[in-house]
Design a protein around this nucleic acid. Structure first.
Lengths: 221, 221
DNA sequence: TAATGTATGTCAAGCGGTTGTCAAAACGCA
DNA sequence: TGCGTTTTGACAACCGCTTGACATACATTA
């Protein structure tokens, strides 16, 4: 049980951590949204506890950002009445919410509930939508403006890796290591060819794959 | 899972529908009691979500009316404190209630609870119909255009697993683990052979089993 | 601005891997 | 033992990956 606690109040983080560790869990802490996003890129969490009101990047925006590359369940922590509508609609993709002041026990209960749910569903619903580009990793389908795109295995893997690292600059070397595997010994221009094919299949959405001269590529949507 | 949502606020209906459909359910909507009664006469629902305060015919009266001809489980949605006593006593024949503002997650949990309760009476038989392909898991029968298909045990298990994961990309490894069991140590090409046999038995509906080159297979209907 | 070198885009062809298919062998149950 | 089922191995057909060559775009320097 790995939890990320995101709150600007150290006291709150400390209390939650206490409870999580008491139950044998592991907790990381972030004091604002930016930090949270960064940590999420680096590690996988079972649940994220996310405060709404924070400096730099607020909770809603942070979840939105994280959703671009991960589907980790999120429980929002908010002051009563604070942006209530958003919480209600879960427009930003959170899975539950708790209003402050909350009892740590309640939070723990929600954590367990969310984790249980996730296990039941089993599938971590990796579905992305960028304008008219629809990507379903579970079903291994990609549609461009509603029309199904027929990709080759490598193209799927490459695209999925791109999407999971949306906005991250990727060198050819890293792509070869991660998509082709560490045991691949070949020309790194191979990447270029596959990017070309992938771009062709993405039609107008080829624009999402940006060339970084002297470096590699980046998926940006 | 067929749900009828009755509420005069379109926003609330939309949110609930979203959640129901996300879980693979089907939802109809009514904006007042009269409409709800009308729809209930025409169709059978697994659960009805019924708001209390509505124009024309209120929730309590609507349930009373529906109870005259159907026993569909009802979950009442009401503002906190609103006619609390009635809700609490379930005098009007509702099976559960949720007070607004509620979290959609909570509502979903109640739906599951109510449906589970109801299941004791009538087992939700796992019967699937894809065009002319009829699959009855409980009866362990498969008919192709009305003609019974004779499958071997493994073929049944494989098909059932496929159907239960309709639209999901499945690797040979996963199929071996789930259908053959984790203790199977053999060639993963074994899957191919069984897929071949299964396809042969499904005749024209072999098309539902899609090959995902470099990965495995997917059932898609 | 022109010249030059480097990086990337693009394409086609051959090779190698993956899958469809079948038959024979191995297995398991009555 | 005998039968149906499962698994394995072999072969053919097919498809995708990789590579090398050339074209083009970009950056650097004079």
């Amino acid at each position: 049980m790995k939890i990320l606690i995101v709150d600007d109040e150290e006291m709150i983080r400390a209390v939650l951590r206490e409870y999580i560790e008491f139950e044998g869990g592991e907790a990381d802490e972030a004091s604002d949204g930016m930090e949270a996003v960064k940590l999420c890129r680096e590690r996988d969490y079972d649940v994220i506890l996310m405060d709404v009101m924070m400096p730099r990047l607020d909770g809603f925006s942070a979840v939105k950002e994280i959703r671009k590359f991960k589907q980790t369940p999120v429980i929002m922590l908010s002051a009563r009445g604070e942006e209530y509508d958003k919480l209600f609609g879960f427009e930003i993709g959170s899975d539950d919410y708790v209003t402050k002041p909350f009892s740590p026990k309640e939070v723990m209960a929600r954590i367990h509930a969310v984790m249980k749910r996730g296990k039941g569903a089993q599938t971590s619903q990796e579905v992305y939508e960028f304008e008219g580009l629809h990507i379903d990793m579970e079903g291994r389908t990609v549609t461009v403006d509603g029309e199904k795109a027929e990709l080759t295995p490598k193209e799927y893997e490459l695209l999925f890796y791109f999407v999971r690292h949306n906005g991250v600059a990727l060198t050819r070397e890293r792509l070869l290591n991660k998509v082709w595997g560490y045991d691949f010994y070949g020309d790194d221009r191979t990447v270029d060819t596959h990017v070309k094919m992938l771009r062709g299949n993405l039609k107008e959405y080829r624009k999402f794959i940006v060339t970084l001269r002297g470096l590699g590529y980046k998926f940006e949507a």
